[in-house]
Design a protein around this nucleic acid. Structure first.
Length: 754
DNA sequence: TCCGATCTATTTTTT
DNA sequence: ATAGATCGGA
């Protein structure tokens, strides 16, 4: 029966068959981590464990999907389907839809994605008449998110002296109030943000012992992938769920922890020891994926980090190729050289496009690469990036679906009440929002009872708002009568959205219509697939509600052309867990990779280095590193320096640079010459990197108005004002003979004179 | 209220 | 560069 175990090495085998009690698998890159997890699930099932008793948690949808497929391949469809396998967020959302009523949430609560939460935060900041420059929605959102990930609610936040003093010294003492309003508004909208899915699950388990007990009984075997990426909330939830049986198996690799920015806590790996002193540790150190050269290069890089659990990754594979190296003069040339290299290797070795991956640090880098690939007629596919579901037209239509399903979804309501235009303008909406706050009722209550709440709008508006709410109510009725596709189509048409975009008659309008049609097709498929697409024991009827529940947690719109023969383009984060024969890591430049925000502290820099490690270890046969000497960033020409990570590659493993830098390339970049007139202000963006080699810039973090400074291009000047914080710190400087300039201190090199 | 012009943040990574 | 937000005039 378990002949499939023969495919495992001893250590993998031991990890698979050990099923009782807590265990941790520390798995080096390419050591067969996913294999162990999937075989373990298969093994459990073969041992007679009920699939309903197994919970497997991953971080990404992709990983969950893949694991599911592999398990099904091993042990068949029927059993595999009933295992709860999914991302933390999707599994917890499922639990909250069933049991969230204990916390006062209906089962049709809306999930706000980060865009939606940011919109809400922005709105609250506006309502509180706070300066959105000081209280930047992104910053506030991040603060709140970090707090929630650490299970600090708004009240705890306000009562935590450390947090408050940190906010105060950042001159943002009112974040606590924004947090508190934000929480209230989410609740009022019957909505949860991503962090709430974890936070509320924790609260549910903490405060409702019987609910916790139910799930403890259900999930008798818990498996967690990428354990190094768990945050505090996830850690505690797992701990609670596993408290009964302690059949918990966590798999991870501290060297691949790359989500610290989102609250991941490597210490969770260390805490495991304390929680389960009798746990069993398995170490997978043999790499099956990569050549010796790649493994060695990666080991050499990661060894530079101080924070790590010791392990020796080794391989029996051949030495293989040396690490390739490409030096380009510009980002466009980098794209061309990479495309050429792919073309060449493809031809020389008869390789499919799918053998290649191009990895970058930021999504924005894909553009120049794409262009080059297109010119070379090399088919490619971009993973991640701005998701299909984040496009405006899709969000609009989803807004109608959301409001139809959950009338209390205020974000959806505000998004669509006047789109397409219905003559309910900004002023009227504002009045309604104010009224909602005054009476502390939901916006839907207001628009359906405008007279009762004495909202000062004219009779025309009352009529229009009435029509709108009647329409939404009629959509709800459609939902009950028709299947998901029919209902969705009806909404797209009756709302006027489809018509609006059709009439636009521009290329964008056409593409928007196409996107809407694509969404409708996806819904059609979903409806037809019915039970098929849903995991676990909750049989799906293929309703629009169910579709929307899935959609909220989808980010990468994989539309099933996975196995087409294409070069893969993605961020390194998105590449985690994947492997490719040939990997190009591009944009190895200081301030890009490592990212400029990560170079100031050791822990941040080490996370970047782990990211580099992850990138290197994606490759099976060959890695090629590339960097460009100049790059357009923020639409501005920038001179770059090679990344420090390049120097961390063992030289004997590196190919000779293919291209020697052009010696004459020291001419100053064309920084736009200030012209008199209104266009003047844009100059602040032009100086990203000083051209003067010997200019000795000062640390400007303490810059204050009144100081005398010197700028390499503009000469001497006087600081008139400083605003913003950290990376967004700006200064207004009056330069002698040049005039007033706004400088982003992150970029501008200034020497402080007095 | 609507429309076009101008301003502005965005670029770290994901659920 | 570029999309979205904001502003100002019709």
């Amino acid at each position: 029966m378990s002949d499939f175990l023969k495919e495992l090495n001893t250590e993998q085998n031991n990890a698979v068959v050990h099923c009782d009690g807590p265990m941790m698998v520390i798995a080096g890159a390419g050591s067969g981590k996913t294999r162990v997890l999937t075989f373990k699930i298969a093994y459990l099932l073969r041992q007679g464990v009920d699939p309903f008793n197994i919970l497997a948690l991953t971080f990404t949808n992709k990983a969950a999907r893949e694991m599911k497929e592999r398990v099904i391949r091993l042990i068949g469809d029927t059993e595999g389907r009933n295992v709860w396998m999914g991302t933390f967020h999707s599994i917890f959302a499922k639990i909250l839809r069933i049991d969230g009523h204990h916390l006062g949430y209906p089962s049709n609560f809306t999930i706000y994605d980060s865009d939606d939460s940011k919109r809400l935060i922005r709105q609250i900041i506006n309502e509180k008449k706070l300066d959105p420059k000081l209280y930047s929605p992104s910053f506030v959102a991040h603060r709140i998110s970090m707090a929630k990930s650490s299970l600090i609610n708004a009240e705890d936040y306000a009562n935590n002296p450390e947090i408050i003093s940190a906010d105060e010294s950042a001159r943002k003492p009112l974040i606590k109030d924004i947090y508190s309003s934000y929480t209230a508004r989410l609740k009022r909208a019957d909505a949860m943000d991503f962090d709430d899915l974890l936070f509320n699950t924790y609260i549910l388990f903490r405060d409702f012992a019987d609910v916790l007990y139910k799930y403890q009984l259900k999930f008798r075997h818990i498996l967690v992938d990428e354990y190094q990426d768990t945050n505090h909330a996830q850690y505690l939830i797992i701990q609670k769920l596993a408290a009964n049986t302690e059949n918990i198996c966590v798999v991870g690799d501290d060297a691949q922890s790359i989500y610290g920015f989102r609250g991941a806590n490597i210490a969770n790996i260390l805490n495991f020891k304390h929680d389960y002193p009798d746990f069993k540790l398995f170490k997978l150190e043999q790499n099956y994926r990569s050549t010796k050269n790649i493994v060695e290069a990666a080991n050499h890089v990661i060894a530079i980090n101080k924070d790590q659990i010791h392990k020796t990754v080794w391989t029996e594979n051949d030495s293989g190729n040396k690490i390739g190296f490409i030096k380009a003069t510009s980002d466009n040339e980098e794209g061309q050289l990479v495309a050429n290299a792919i073309f060449e290797q493809k031809m020389n070795h008869q390789l499919p496009n799918s053998a290649f991956a191009i990895l970058y640090r930021t999504n924005a880098q894909s553009r120049s690469i794409e262009e080059a690939l297109r010119k070379r007629n090399i088919p490619y596919r971009i993973y991640g990036g701005l998701s299909f579901y984040q496009r405006k037209e899709i969000k609009d239509l989803l807004g109608y679906f959301r409001l139809t399903i959950n009338h209390n979804d205020e974000d959806a309501l505000q998004r669509i009440i006047n789109f397409p235009a219905r003559g309910i303008g900004k002023t009227s909406i504002e009045k309604m929002v104010v009224a909602a706050d005054e009476h502390d009722v939901n916006l839907w209550d207001i628009i359906t009872h405008l007279e009762k709440y004495k909202v000062g709008v004219n009779s025309g508006i009352i009529k229009k708002a009435g029509d709108f709410s009647t329409m939404i109510k009629s959509f709800r009725a459609e939902l009950k009568k028709k299947d998901a596709y029919e209902a969705a189509k009806h909404i797209a048409v009756s709302s006027g959205l489809l018509k609006l975009y059709r009439e636009e008659d521009t290329p964008e309008g056409i593409s928007r219509v196409e996107n809407i049609e694509e969404l409708l097709n996806a819904i059609k498929e979903f409806a037809e697939a019915g039970a098929e697409s849903n995991e676990g024991d909750m049989a799906s009827q293929g309703t629009l509600e169910e579709f929307m529940q899935d959609v909220a947690l989808l980010t990468d719109a994989d539309n099933e052309d996975e196995d087409k023969d294409k070069v893969a383009l993605m961020t390194i984060h998105a590449a985690k867990g994947l492997e490719f024969p040939h990997v190009f890591i591009v944009g190895l430049e200081e301030n890009l990779f490592p990212s400029i925000q990560s170079i100031s502290t050791r822990t941040d820099l080490e996370e970047e280095r782990r990211l580099f490690y992850v990138a290197l270890t994606r490759a099976m046969e060959k890695v090629t590193l590339s960097h460009a000497e100049s790059r357009y960033r923020w639409g501005q020409f920038t001179i770059t320096e090679p990344s420090r990570f390049l120097e961390e590659i063992d030289e004997k493993l590196l190919e000779r640079p293919k291209k020697v830098s052009m010696p004459g390339f020291s001419t100053s970049p064309k920084t736009s010459i200030p012209k008199p007139g209104p266009g003047f202000k844009s100059v602040n963006k032009t100086i990203s990197k000083s051209v003067e080699m010997n200019f000795d810039a000062s640390d400007t973090s303490a810059l204050q108005s009144g100081m005398q400074v010197e700028h390499p291009n503009f000469g001497l000047g006087k600081v008139m004002a400083v605003e913003g914080n950290g990376a967004n710190m700006k200064a207004t400087v009056y330069f002698n003979g040049v005039g007033k300039k706004n400088l982003l201190l992150r970029f501008a090199k200034l020497k402080i004179i007095t």
